[in-house]
Amino acid sequence: MSEQRDVPAIGGKSFTAVAINSAAKAGEWIKTKLGKHTTLNLKYSAQDLVTEVDKGAETMIRNLIMTHFPHHSFLGEEGVQPGPEASERALSNVQDEEYLWIVDPVDGTTNFVHGFPFFSVSIALAHKGEVIVGIVYDPMRDELFVAEKGKGAYVHGQRMSVSEEADLRESLVATGFPADPLMLQPNLQQLQAIAPQVRNIRSGGSAALHMAYVAAGRLSGFWEQGLNAWDLAAGYLLIKESGGRVSDMAGEPYHLGVRHVAATNGRIHDSFVDELKKAGAASRTEG
């Protein structure tokens, strides 16, 4: 692929090339399973779903990565117990590791289950807590979004840059509706506050893809409450390397523990966060 350039490596093995290969192989397999999953279970809530495809894709990605980097650490959504407390514990146990792979095998499982073609594979690599590689792959559109720290972000081999909108009134933004029932009401308050301020709002159902779209200039901004490192890490680097900005909803810089996120082209970020704050979004702080 054209994205496989001069990339960070250990012993000649490219981190980014391994991430791309893992995302592509998992994505191709996930696509063949669309409409054919055989199990469906609830995790934390009726909106938090898992199938054997999620678990199989994560196993595939883990095996592919560990073949090349057996001493690296791995944090995958399907290896963590449901619920925000379990997610925070799982991250705290590994976030200080030298190399940590952070994976959501199917970001948008509800869409996958319903045959709605908006889901993705998200793979990030953090070095001592800082994201250095981010991959989001959309198997239905065969779109691969790739970022490396300090080297830019790309889709279809072309350099990405965020959108030019400098005013909320000209901005197309997106949100997601949280799987955590406790987050739904605050999210609806934010939606009510933001909707009159922007050109329009979308909700596709995959945080990783929404963030990739911000990086590609297709959206001016994105916000959502109650997310986890595997939802955000790859998208964060895509946006950063495309010239945008990612923070928590209080406007503080992104780190792996952020759960309530605001991501924009940078130009609208302060006004976007101000509107979220007015809706009480910052009342739930990050650890």
Rank of each mutant, 00 (worst) to 15 (best):
S45G: 02
S45Q: 00
D48T: 08
L49K: 06
L49E: 08
V50A: 08
T51P: 05
V53S: 05
D54Y: 03
D54G: 07
A57Y: 06
T59F: 11
M60D: 05
I61K: 06
R62D: 11
R62Y: 12
N63L: 12
L64F: 04
L64D: 15
I65Q: 00
I65A: 04
T67I: 11
T67R: 15
T67P: 04
T67H: 14
H68I: 04
F69M: 12
F69V: 08
P70E: 04
P70T: 06
H71C: 09
H72D: 15
H72G: 12
H72P: 07
F74C: 08
F74I: 04
F74V: 07
F74W: 08
L75P: 00
E77C: 08
E78P: 06
E78I: 09
G83L: 02
P84I: 09
A86D: 12
A86I: 07
A86S: 15
S87A: 15
E88M: 14
E88T: 11
R89M: 13
A90T: 02
A90P: 01
A90I: 01
L91K: 04
L91Y: 11
N93P: 01
N93H: 13
N93K: 13
V94N: 09
V94H: 00
Q95A: 13
Q95F: 09
E97G: 07
E98C: 03
E98G: 04
E98D: 11
E98P: 00
E98V: 10
E98Q: 08
Y99S: 09
V103C: 05
V103T: 05
P105W: 03
P105A: 10
V106Y: 03
D107N: 02
G108F: 05
T109A: 10
T109G: 02
F112Y: 00
F112S: 00
V113S: 05
G115E: 07
F116V: 10
F116Y: 14
P117S: 12
P117N: 12
F118K: 06
F118Y: 15
F118V: 15
F119L: 06
F119H: 11
S120W: 03
S120T: 09
V121G: 01
I123Q: 03
I123E: 01
I123Y: 06
I123L: 09
A124C: 08
H127A: 14
H127R: 15
K128A: 15
G129S: 14
I132T: 09
I132Q: 06
I135H: 11
I135S: 04
I135G: 08
V136S: 00
V136W: 02
V136C: 02
Y137V: 03
R141V: 07
D142V: 12
E143S: 11
L144V: 03
A147N: 05
E148K: 09
E148T: 10
G150P: 07
G150Y: 10
Y154P: 00
Y154Q: 05
Y154H: 02
V155L: 13
V155K: 07
H156P: 01
G157H: 12
G157I: 10
G157T: 11
Q158P: 00
Q158G: 13
R159H: 10
M160E: 04
M160H: 12
V162A: 00
S163W: 02
S163V: 07
E165C: 10
E165Y: 10
E165R: 06
